[in-house]
Simulated assay, not measured.
Amino acid sequence: MKYMLLVCGDDTNDASGMAPVEPWVEELGDRGVRLHGHRLALPADAVTVRVRGGEVLRTDGPFAETKEYVAGFDILECDSLEEAVEAAAKHPVATIGAMEVRPFWEDEDAEGRIRRLDAELAEAARTGDADRTLACYAQDAQVVENGRLHQGGEALRKFFAETAPITREVLEFRVHVDESIAFGHALIRTGGKLLRVTTGYRDVGPRWLIVHEHVTEATS
């Protein structure tokens, strides 16, 4: 399970004796526990945004005036909350600040959502619905099909309309997910042809969309 580790500094404490963070990052990275993370700029560089009555209100600075502030974040992959707490306790900033450990919201995993998107793509192609097919792609997506580039909404809509309806039988499908991007490798039989398809996906919040697709005829 994934956990967000919020690294909270305290500007009233002396950090001169704090141990370096790099060994902690390297150790958890080598163990596959720390997936991603980064330092953040100071609260003075923050901008707080609110919308009230349809008006965007922008305030320079953090959301709340406090001695503690979020100085960075880390995304951990742990088997339990106890393991995540243990990892947080070893972070050097824990000796002068605080570490907030918060589980990610439980939802269908990324690979499941991508496979559901691929099933939607297959059904859209079968029914010849170009609009439904296009909805599976980002607005700036590009499809390279046997060396021909189709990029952007109008070009893709025309391409899908010309090639649909077709039966799209997925023979193999492997997905690798890395945070907000993913890659898929598939062997697909369609229109009497065997195709190898490499697909790049991007997480746009409520769903994943295709941003790049490379299609070639399989030689074997």
Rank of each mutant, 00 (worst) to 15 (best):
L76V: 08
K67Y: 01
E123K: 11
F173G: 08
A41K: 15
L35F: 08
L195K: 13
V175M: 13
I188V: 15
F173A: 08
F159N: 08
A161P: 10
R31E: 09
V70L: 12
R196M: 12
V51E: 15
A15R: 09
A89T: 03
E100S: 05
S180Q: 13
D131Q: 10
G37M: 06
R102N: 05
V25W: 05
F63Q: 06
L57H: 13
A41P: 15
E213P: 03
E217R: 14
D129E: 14
Y201E: 00
V47H: 10
L209W: 04
F63G: 02
V211Q: 00
V51R: 06
H185D: 07
I166Y: 03
L149T: 10
E77Y: 07
H185G: 12
S180I: 00
R113C: 00
T48E: 12
E27F: 05
L209Q: 12
A135L: 08
W208D: 01
S220M: 12
R39H: 14
P43E: 15
K193M: 07
G17R: 05
G200V: 13
G17M: 05
A164K: 00
P92Q: 11
E123C: 01
E68I: 08
M18F: 02
A88E: 11
R50F: 07
A15G: 10
D14M: 06
T198V: 12
C136V: 00
L121D: 11
A130S: 08
H214R: 01
C8Q: 07
